[in-house]
Simulated assay, not measured.
Amino acid sequence: MNDEELHLNLEDKEWPLTTIDHDRMIARAIVVDGDDNFYFVRANRDDDFGKATLIETAGGGVEPGENLDTAIRRELIEELGAEVEVICKIGVVSDYYNLIHRHNINNYYLCRVKSFGDKHLTQDEIEDFHLSTLKLHYDEALAEYEKCSSTRLGRLVANREVPVLKRAKDLLDVKE
């Protein structure tokens, strides 16, 4: 396995493309602990995308003037309460949410947990998305993505994240 970054360009085949009117720079992470547990967020949504329960990597939008390293560390504290060591950048996945006219530029990192503390979720994350933490082994995570792929949004997320999770597992296996 070489250390070349993963680069994927994905289309939204769930909703028709009318127009894309904005880009969103995003920092996301595959987060692992010393016991090979992976940490994700569970979202229970009922919004423009429909009703869905999803597994997703922790992460979110990069704020104006913020670099990716700062953004990933901030997002992991907010959503997981996790202080992390950034092991490496996994790569970039470009995907689209046609329904909301958005192009996502997802920058993925592989991170190891140093410690857990309090989460700092936004009101939307608490009230609209009902975010909670999932701690899963690799095979359980793959099964969870498969289960959540029964919805249109779940398929978009799984198409983006399963290749990244597999790449992260390969990188971890090489480092051991």
Results as ranks from 00 to 15, higher is better:
residue 49 F to S: 03
residue 167 R to M: 10
residue 136 L to H: 03
residue 117 G to E: 02
residue 14 E to A: 05
residue 133 T to V: 13
residue 130 H to Y: 01
residue 120 H to L: 04
residue 114 K to F: 05
residue 168 A to C: 09
residue 171 L to V: 09
residue 61 G to E: 12
residue 135 K to G: 04
residue 48 D to P: 11
residue 99 L to P: 05
residue 94 S to P: 01
residue 18 T to A: 07
residue 92 V to T: 12
residue 90 I to T: 03
residue 159 N to R: 12
residue 52 A to G: 01
residue 57 T to M: 15
residue 15 W to V: 01
residue 4 E to H: 11
residue 45 R to S: 06
residue 34 G to N: 12
residue 17 L to C: 00
residue 133 T to I: 11
residue 39 Y to T: 11
residue 1 M to R: 05
residue 115 S to C: 11
residue 72 I to H: 02
residue 31 V to C: 07
residue 75 E to S: 11
residue 171 L to N: 06
residue 162 V to M: 02
residue 24 R to C: 11
residue 128 D to R: 09
residue 140 E to K: 11
residue 88 C to Y: 13
residue 166 K to H: 12
residue 127 E to H: 07
residue 84 V to Y: 11
residue 164 V to Q: 04
residue 21 D to F: 05
residue 80 L to G: 12
residue 114 K to E: 10
residue 97 Y to G: 09
residue 164 V to I: 13
residue 72 I to V: 15
residue 146 E to T: 09
residue 5 E to S: 06
residue 72 I to G: 01
residue 33 D to V: 07
residue 91 G to W: 14
residue 89 K to P: 08
residue 144 E to T: 12
residue 83 E to A: 04
residue 169 K to M: 14
residue 154 G to D: 03
residue 151 T to V: 02
residue 44 N to S: 07
residue 163 P to S: 03
residue 33 D to E: 04
residue 22 H to F: 09
residue 57 T to V: 13
residue 138 Y to A: 01
residue 169 K to D: 05
residue 81 G to E: 01
residue 95 D to H: 13
residue 126 I to L: 00
residue 2 N to G: 06
residue 108 Y to I: 09
residue 96 Y to I: 02
residue 147 K to Q: 08
residue 92 V to K: 08
residue 174 V to G: 12
residue 46 D to V: 13
residue 17 L to T: 02
residue 144 E to G: 00
residue 15 W to H: 03
residue 21 D to V: 08
residue 3 D to P: 05
residue 170 D to L: 14
residue 91 G to H: 13
residue 45 R to W: 09
residue 106 N to E: 11
residue 52 A to F: 11
residue 135 K to R: 15
residue 61 G to A: 04
residue 140 E to N: 02
residue 79 E to F: 13
residue 91 G to E: 01
residue 100 I to T: 13
residue 149 S to H: 09
residue 101 H to A: 13
residue 116 F to G: 04
residue 87 I to R: 14
residue 92 V to H: 02
residue 116 F to C: 00
residue 4 E to L: 12
